Lab assay of single mutants.
Amino acid sequence: MTEYKLVVVGAGGVGKSALTIQLIQNHFVDEYDPTIEDSYRKQVVIDGETCLLDILDTAGQEEYSAMRDQYMRTGEGFLCVFAINNTKSFEDIHHYREQIKRVKDSEDVPMVLVGNKCDLPSRTVDTKQAQDLARSYGIPFIETSAKTRQGVDDAFYTLVREIRKHKEKMSKDGKKKKKKSKTKCVIM
């Protein structure tokens, strides 16, 4: 069974824990209790493949930012979460993405942009803004509501699919490099 290491990042209060708990335990946590770091595991079937999701729910508070490099190193894919009623959390996505790329030393890291709290009427981040940002990053965008469960499975499952595509691409690139290195030079 394939294991996928997913990391949920975003500013404090955007609903990272609520999304994760909704996926794992099928219930909505409405009281806000700032996370330092929590880890969850769940076995699911995605596109006919049974897999184990190892999900790291991270601290959004700035005082825990020193811990970010460590979990970013171990993560295979990242859910970059903002709240649709919090423009600052949307603007912060850029910083999370840049930090992930720096730590992973790669421009090509599996990510999904997630606009959470889409059940709320007080939207300050337009869907088109988020779609445009995701398009500019070359990553999928999904709106979710941890409260109603809308888009929750889709967000995590899409990230797994992005990781699969990335692994497939990397193995193809690896095979191309191996083929090239088999060419021999004969000096007579």
Rank of each mutant, 00 (worst) to 15 (best):
Y71T: 14
D105Q: 15
M67I: 11
Q131E: 13
L79T: 00
V186S: 15
V186E: 15
G13C: 08
Y32G: 12
A134W: 04
R161H: 12
T35K: 06
K104S: 09
C118Y: 06
Y157D: 13
G15P: 00
F156E: 01
E107Y: 11
R149G: 15
E76S: 10
E37M: 05
K117H: 14
Y71M: 13
T50A: 07
V109Q: 01
Q70D: 15
P110G: 00
Q150T: 14
I21G: 15
N26W: 02
K104L: 12
D57C: 13
P121A: 12
L19K: 06
R123I: 09
R102P: 01
R123V: 12
H95Q: 12
N26M: 05
L113V: 05
D153M: 15
G151V: 05
D132T: 08
F82L: 07
K101A: 05
L159P: 00
E162F: 03
M72V: 07
A155M: 05
G60L: 03
I163T: 09
L159Y: 00
Y137M: 14
K175A: 14
L19F: 07
I139N: 05
D69W: 01
E49I: 03
T183P: 15
K16G: 07
I187L: 15
T87A: 12
Q22D: 10
D153G: 11
E162H: 03
Y137Q: 10
F156L: 14
I46G: 05
Y40S: 11
D105R: 10
Q22W: 06
R123E: 14
Q131G: 05
T148Y: 14
M170T: 15
C118H: 05
S122L: 07
E37Q: 11
Q131C: 08
F78W: 03
R73P: 06
K169P: 02
E62P: 10
S65L: 05
I24R: 12
I93A: 02
P121S: 13
Q99F: 14
M111H: 00
T20M: 10
K184S: 11
V7G: 03
T20N: 12
H94N: 15
K88I: 04
D69G: 04
I84F: 14
D47C: 02
Y4I: 08
Y137D: 04
L159S: 01
T144V: 07
Q61F: 06
K117Q: 10
L120I: 10
D54G: 05
V152I: 14
G75E: 04
I24F: 10
D69Y: 02
Q22I: 00
R73M: 07
C118L: 07
G151Y: 03
S145H: 14
K128S: 14
I142Y: 10
T50C: 07
L23A: 14
D47H: 04
Y96H: 11
G151C: 11
S39Q: 05
Q131I: 10
V81D: 00
S145R: 03
C185Q: 15
T20I: 05
K169R: 14
G115N: 03
L52W: 09
G138K: 10
R68K: 12
Q22M: 02
K177W: 09
S171G: 15
Y40P: 09
Y96D: 01
P140R: 05
